[in-house]
Design a binder for these strands. Structure first.
Lengths: 246, 246
DNA sequence: CGCCACGGGTTTGCATACAATTGTTCTTGC
DNA sequence: GCAAGAACAATTGTATGCAAACCCGTGGCG
């Protein structure tokens, strides 16, 4: 070996490189990945390639093929809808448990701080939003929500449910900035953030769970809109490129 | 290769062997696994060992350690409670979606058949149950429930939630046969099975979801009972050996 | 006409040697 | 006495060659 590359080990670099190629659609869903071919392309040996593919299978982007090897996992429209539904279910469970069992005061104070950060992203005029900042703080808010019950199993499994790129809470944010309708929908989303924390503080478990689920359904609406009316946006939303077109 | 072992590849055999050692408690939670040591013990090279450990990490029994390598995942009592809660949440989601979206008539007929099979496990006297058969049919029932919405993403993720041995729908069945209280609780469980299918057929999504969740909470009660009153049973329930004692 | 056996090419499975990295312990200087 | 650093040991990371399994086409035979 000449030298370890920037991103630590060769396996890590391969993992990052392959992830990019999958998300960009360069390696389309259903395609089988051959170790030797990839090893030649990335100019490393088969061993770190296998390691990288194994990680990507854990991540949900690859699936193991009967008889050995991997193939790029393919997602139909329904799969994406279900993944978002499950994200809502898992975040809803975290919210409910935080309400039922009671969250740490310090953690709740942190949620209030994150809410305030999100509020600051909205300007005076309706439709005036700092998207970069909103997206950033939104991710933090959802991560903190998963940790709110103070249970590592919950936090871990919520993180897993938000792992696929199109199931992430910020999946439909950055690139839809242009559309006025999407901009206004952020006011609704932020209202839901406030109601969610209010419900948790009031120990209203069922309400908190329902709000979190409904919050995720906004992403389902965005997805449906993109696929039925605005397919030009598909390549602009991260991970949507690997959804098989009907 | 000298001898192809019974279970296909060496990696598979190693995976099975390691899984057994973890579940039996021979490799306790938190213990780091070293490739060379295991390779010598199992008389194979490091390569299939790594492959096996990677699979077990996907399965949730191992976790990757910072700086490389694996360690046996350790589960506290709370983790097991949460895993069962999440199993209930996921099965509840499958039940709700089956009710809301409507399941295939053929699939519903199959559920009725599985219900009848379970009914047949109960004898005339109260407390007279064929445990072997009940356990078997119970697994089938829960697997079919996950498939009822007809969505592969749902089926896959429910399967994942039932994957840890103590989170499985049959985890507390076989070895608790001795205790009369457990035997009687099976009547309650079977009543819930019936109500669940009734709710799904009547398109009562919220009811179906609530029943499935409550159904899982019986396992939580069993777990609590075992840990507070009957710790002698701990080694007899699969996977409970790897729960760290408080 | 269909089925099975066989062959060759393709791909993964496995072992092994060596490199790189990490963690640890001992030393040395202050 | 303590901290910084250097040598060392332990462990994983990587490359590579060979073996085995698999896939697919082809030809022989029932």
């Amino acid at each position: 070996m000449t030298r370890a590359s920037a991103a630590g080990t060769h396996a890590m670099r391969a993992q990052i490189e392959l992830r990019e190629r999958i998300l960009s659609g360069e390696l389309p869903g259903g395609m089988r990945l051959f170790e030797v071919a990839l090893a030649e392309q990335l100019e490393i040996s088969r061993t770190p390639i296998r390691e990288a593919m194994s990680h990507l299978a854990e991540e949900g982007l690859l699936e193991r093929v009967r008889g050995g090897g991997f193939r790029v996992r393919s997602f139909a429209f329904d799969d994406v809808m279900d993944a978002i539904e499950l994200r809502g279910v898992m975040e809803g469970t975290a919210a409910r448990l935080a309400a039922e069992r009671g969250a740490e005061p310090a953690a709740l104070a942190e949620m209030q701080r994150l809410l305030a950060d999100l509020d600051k992203c909205f300007g005076a005029e309706p439709g005036e939003v700092d998207f970069e900042a909103y997206s950033e703080h939104n991710s933090r808010f959802h991560a903190a929500l998963a940790a709110l019950p103070g249970r590592r199993m919950i936090e871990r499994e919520v993180a897993r449910a938000t792992q696929l790129p199109f199931a992430s809470p910020s999946a439909f944010l950055p690139d839809n900035a242009r559309l006025a309708a999407f901009r206004l929908s952020l006011n609704v989303a932020q209202e839901q953030h406030h109601a969610l924390i209010e419900a948790i503080e009031a120990r209203q478990g069922a309400r908190a769970e329902a709000i979190a689920r409904e919050h995720a359904r906004a992403a389902q609406r965005n997805l449906r809109h993109i696929f039925s009316d605005d397919r030009a946006l598909i390549p602009r939303v991260p991970g949507l490129g690997l959804v098989t077109q009907p």
